[in-house]
Amino acid sequence: MSAAQDHDANATKRALRWLLTGQIALALGLIIIDIGPAVPRFLSPSSQPELDLRTSPGDQTRRYRTRDPSNPGPGIDPDMPSRLRAEEVEIDGTTALQLRGAIAPGDASRIVDELRSTAPATLLLDSPGGSVSDALEIGRAVREIGAETRLLDNTVCLSACPYIFVGGVKRSIAENARIGVHQHAFGESTILPAFLAVEDIQRGQAEVLMHLDTMGIDLRIMGPAMATPADEIYILTSDELVTWNVTSD
């Protein structure tokens, strides 16, 4: 190889090296921009009381661990299924369908088929939350079949679960049951370029707002939902449940 050819080869290698370095730096920059705002929450998790501590008006925010949707903290049944399960149960002398467990991605297709095939008059819920898109799809199916939704004593409907609950044509909650809302993450990936992440969140929030409005829910509920970080949960009071039309009884 001549000196000129050797010089050209070295120049090409240097250009490729700089190009690769630039691409890595750009990728790291986009990741930092995307996850940067969440770093303080990661380094300093919520200091709110745990879920097993009772709430009262003005003291309604509790810690919510997001790593395991089926077990977001004390006060949740440790045997809560990791995926939503449908089971027929007897209540008040009639057969109802109970949905219990975390809402895992992909659950909607199976649960919607179950709802349409059994068409229960009453749907009982006990779920700490999970996939927003699946909850929205299930909630629409609940309204489609005309079922009522209920929370029995000591059950929960947190995070994405309220989007199923509001699908009921009639909605009621026992005194010791809890409904809670907070901010959601939308999309399959948690690491996206900033502009794509914002677009994904906006699209998801628009779908949630449309769902709530279609179901006749007062959109003031989105105030505490959007103000409460994902690692915390805001438990709605009985007055808020009635005023914002979350319950119908």
Rank of each mutant, 00 (worst) to 15 (best):
S2I: 08
G223P: 05
P69I: 09
P57C: 07
R62C: 02
A25I: 09
D249P: 15
M80R: 04
R143I: 04
E88W: 01
I103Y: 03
G130C: 01
Y163P: 02
Y64I: 06
Q98I: 08
E175A: 15
N10A: 14
R203V: 12
H184K: 06
V198P: 01
G75P: 01
E188S: 13
L192R: 12
T243F: 07
G129H: 04
L43W: 02
V89T: 10
I76H: 10
H184T: 10
A194S: 11
D134H: 00
L19A: 14
D213H: 13
F195P: 12
I138Q: 06
Q48I: 05
D200A: 14
T94C: 09
S70Y: 00
V208F: 01
G204C: 08
P72G: 08
Q183Y: 09
N71A: 15
I201S: 13
L196P: 08
E144S: 10
F195M: 13
G223H: 13
Q5A: 14
Q98F: 05
I201V: 13
Q5R: 14
G106M: 04
S109D: 14
A141K: 06
V156R: 04
A160P: 03
L123I: 09
S46I: 01
N176F: 09
D239W: 03
A225F: 03
G129I: 02
D218P: 06
R54H: 12
S46T: 00
L53I: 15
